[in-house]
């Protein structure tokens, strides 16, 4: 019995075979591009919130994509709810993810979407994190957080307090300066008396008034010095706080500078984006114009009415 295939059957078979071959080749090419066939490792990262991360968001190290976010879920295991982000990272970079690596969500300046940045650990010094282990995370700071941290009101209040203290001290110094000057004047007077009585020291020594005034002056001088020491102490305490405050202010200024730099960068990107958009729109218009120019299409298009010179009649004017 002859069971040979007909020519049509052979052709159909060949066609199916070729289709299958092309499909497999396409799958391989796409898979290669998407790293489907590369070995990957799964890790967990925990955050207080999801920061707009989504499955498919990039995982980067040194601004280079090394994996993807595959899942996000809210964990109820502890009293404090947290978002557990599951990521898959290419196995070739697994050695860089160590115990001292830190995962942080990064936001684009103005456009784009959030991604997860993992800082490289210290291979050799710190052990690598095992698969399905949790990478330490750092909460992402939003602009609101920066502003909250900055606490401008608190900083201003502290600065105001310092100024009040300085004013108070200055005032006190002024009072004691007067006392000191008075004492010095008294002392001058005594010295003048001594100098005037230089021919008769015994007579001078018998002047009880001199001793009294000298004692008074010394007592006052002692009081002034005591006050001065106290003031110096106060000043020291205040100045001790100053570097910390200055450092805090400096830190906040740096933060604000960083935010401003981000905004500036974003504003630089914006015209570029608008340029691209208008370029694309122009391109679209040109394509439509070109299509309209084609006689075949032009024949089937409804004819555009001519534009007219508007005539404004008196009845149409309010």
């Amino acid at each position: 019995m002859n069971e040979a295939f007909t020519r049509s059957e052979k052709l159909a078979g060949l066609f199916l075979f070729l289709t299958l071959l092309i499909a497999v080749a396409a799958l391989l090419v796409i898979g290669q591009g998407k790293a489907w066939f590369k070995s990957q490792r799964t890790y967990l990262v925990k955050f207080r919130q999801g920061y707009n991360l989504q499955p498919g968001s990039s995982v980067k190290m040194f601004n280079t994509e090394i994996g993807k976010v595959t899942n996000l879920r809210i964990s109820r295991l502890t009293d404090r709810l947290e978002v557990v982000v599951t990521i898959r990272v290419l196995a070739e970079y697994a050695d860089l993810i160590c115990q001292d690596s830190v995962a942080e969500v990064q936001s684009p300046t103005l456009f784009g979407s959030e991604y997860l940045e993992i800082s490289p650990g210290s291979p050799g010094k710190k052990p690598p994190i095992a698969e399905y282990g949790t990478i330490p995370s750092k909460e992402h700071k939003t602009l609101a957080d920066y502003l909250e941290e900055f606490q401008p009101e608190d900083s201003l209040r502290r600065a105001k307090q310092i100024l009040i203290n300085i004013a108070y001290l200055t005032e006190k110094l002024k009072i004691h300066e007067k006392k000191l000057l008075t004492s010095l004047n008294n002392f001058n007077e005594v010295m003048a008396s001594v100098l005037e009585a230089k021919g008769s020291l015994g007579k001078l020594l018998m002047q009880t008034d001199f001793y009294g005034r000298l004692e008074l002056s010394l007592t006052r001088l002692e009081s002034v010095l005591k006050d001065a020491a106290q003031i110096t102490g106060d000043l020291k305490n205040t100045t001790r706080d100053m570097p910390a405050l200055a450092q805090a202010v400096s830190q906040e200024v740096q933060n604000v500078k960083s935010i401003l730099a981000d905004i500036k960068q974003g504003s630089q990107e914006f015209p570029e984006l608008m340029g691209s958009a208008s370029e694309a729109a122009r391109g679209g218009t040109e394509v439509v114009d070109a299509l309209k120019a084609n006689p075949l299409i032009r024949l089937t298009l409804p004819k555009q009415p001519p534009s007219k010179t508007i005539h404004v009649e008196p009845r149409n004017v309010p």
């Binding site: 114009d289 070109a290 309209k292 120019a293 084609n294 006689p295 075949l296 299409i297 555009q304």
Partner: peptide, 15 residues
């Protein structure tokens, strides 16, 4: 005839 559409940039701008 359809392929014979020549470029007319001035006409396009007028349109």
């Amino acid at each position: 005839y359809g392929c014979g559409a020549g470029p007319d940039p001035y006409g396009q701008q007028v349109n």
